[in-house]
């Protein structure tokens, strides 16, 4: 189901680009409506300024957290420094669930679960970047983002006792009381977000050498076990 959604999103964009070179005007119009969810914090278009969030002009192809005049979370800054750029695929992942991509982001937005809505919103956003028609929707090799995780992996029921042992590997750096100085908190996470984030490290979609290494050797069952354990310590 999740996979299907992502596939449809790519198809929509490809179709839009393939023919006229311009995004589907119906999508753009729908996206403008959806943008009302973002307006509380972000401005876009002529004269747009940073407000609670940075303005969104010229977003495509820009390094994450790269406006000089805006104070980003450490988390997003770190992602930007490790190479995250805003393209259709990365925006799609971020908008779907901001915290799954950047755990410490200050964008307190639950995300948009509906893939089509995200596609429409992204189509709208891209009209405010230079030469929107020439913006590729995603690198062909990109394996997609968080949401293409196999539903079977998400459905695995983890063993919290095993997770408790495995978690001791996390707590050398991540504090169990949720403290965050330089290393993000990993407690109080919904189980699914935890699984999605760990797989994004495992598949090297999220950048961080330590976490890629740690997640890289965890099996699907082990990630589920960790998520189950961290869910049990949620108060």
């Amino acid at each position: 189901m999740l996979k299907g959604g992502a596939f449809a999103a790519v198809l929509t964009l490809t179709a839009a680009l393939g023919t006229s070179g311009a995004a589907d005007t119906a999508d753009i119009a729908a996206g403008e409506k959806i943008f009302s969810k973002c307006k509380g914090c972000h401005q876009i278009g002529e004269g747009a300024k940073h407000r609670i969030g940075p303005h969104l002009n010229g977003l495509f192809g820009r390094k994450a957290a790269s406006h000089d005049g805006f104070k980003y979370s450490k988390s997003l800054t770190r992602l930007g420094n490790s190479g995250l750029e805003w393209h259709a695929d990365t925006l799609d992942a971020y908008i779907e669930n901001p915290r799954a991509l950047a755990s410490g982001t200050r964008m307190s937005f639950r995300g948009i679960k509906d893939a089509q809505e995200r596609t429409q919103l992204i189509a709208y956003l891209r009209t405010f970047s230079d030469n929107p028609a020439n913006i590729p929707e995603a690198d062909p090799t990109a394996t997609g983002t968080d949401h293409d995780l196999d539903p079977e992996i998400l459905a695995i029921v983890g063993d919290p006792e095993y997770g408790e042992y495995l978690s001791s590997e996390c707590t050398t750096c991540h504090q169990t009381d949720g403290g965050d100085d330089g290393i993000p908190s990993i407690v109080f996470w919904p189980e699914e977000d935890f699984v999605v984030a760990m797989h994004a490290y495992k598949n090297k979609q999220r950048a961080h050498p330590v976490m890629q290494m740690m997640a890289g050797r965890l099996s699907n069952d082990e990630i589920a076990a960790l998520a189950a354990y961290f869910a049990t310590i949620e108060e």
Partner: peptide
């Protein structure tokens, strides 16, 4: 900064 987080952890 990460090393400081590790020390606290």
């Amino acid at each position: 900064e990460e090393s400081e987080g590790w020390y606290a952890g």
